[in-house]
Amino acid sequence: MGQIMYSLEDVKQQITQGRRLLLAGDEAILRQLPPGEWIGGTIPYFMTAEGGVCARDRIHVTELPPFVTGVDIRTYDEESISRVYSDTPEHGFSVIIIPALSQTHYSFALNAPNYQGFAIHPLIGWISGVHLNDLGRSTAKVFSGSGAHTCEEGAVVMHVALPRNKTAEVGIVNIFEQGDGDNITFGADCFSTSEAYINGQKKNFGEYLYEKRLDKRLPLVADYCGAMINTSFQEGEERVQEVSFYAPVFSGLRYRHAKPVVDAAERFATLMPKDSQEQILFSCNCILNYLYCELEGKQIGLTGPATFGEIAYQLLNQTMVYLRITDLSPKG
């Protein structure tokens, strides 16, 4: 079940052959694809078998295996996205792509844990983006091959049905863990805030970060019953009053600033799932890991787009996510 980089002509051929594809690439190249059973999102950064690369002339392709029993491609807006979990097949999984900064992105990020059927079936995906040189000049987009529909304000989802003898499972690789510093909590669910509670004491969060000289390339980390879930800072080292994030912080969670990671590539390699590559259908990693961990040219094991946000049931930051397909043992 390989993920690989292909030329435009190769991908056109695969689509016309009726293959079912999950695609990632630059907007200009995705726009040239014919209709078919595919979904895609814009991004020109990738982790490949040769290491991290930026490429506008190739498309990252994940082909669904032939044993898939059916696919259903749908688009959702900021309201209808609440049905994404309940639309997933009883026995299967769903792949979602949402454009960065869209209303659907914000709506899903804040509300997904309240949607009906949250986390009952596997949902994996990513937030599409743009080349960093095009920030502010170009917008992230998603594509639905059914009708070659392009969208910058909604999500595209491929719901995938599996045979009874196969099962899908979502996993994450997070190189960060909670540090030993202050407990940080927030009074509301939000993408930006000026206030936080530091060990229970209300403070201006921007001033706190500046005074403590906390490295904002390291995320805030919350412990979800043993799963470390990151929220990344948007700003750099500058002093700000209002602090913005790439995913929401939630009230009721206790965050800590992450411990520094000495050798990120080595840490990724250590934490990678030990499955054969055949079992991992899809994976993607965060553009912030690509940038801050200097992954360009470095191999870390799994391949896939380097994205503006990762989805493993809910929106994550600075995390690698993957979908594994395995055979079920026959019931005796």
Partner: peptide, 23 residues
């Protein structure tokens, strides 16, 4: 009861429930 789950969805739902019950 705080079991150490292997299944990611179980960890995430328990973390989410804990957050919701806090309010």
């Amino acid at each position: 009861l705080k079991p150490e789950f292997d299944f990611l969805a179980a960890k995430i739902i328990v973390g989410t429930i804990s957050r919701k019950l806090a309010s």
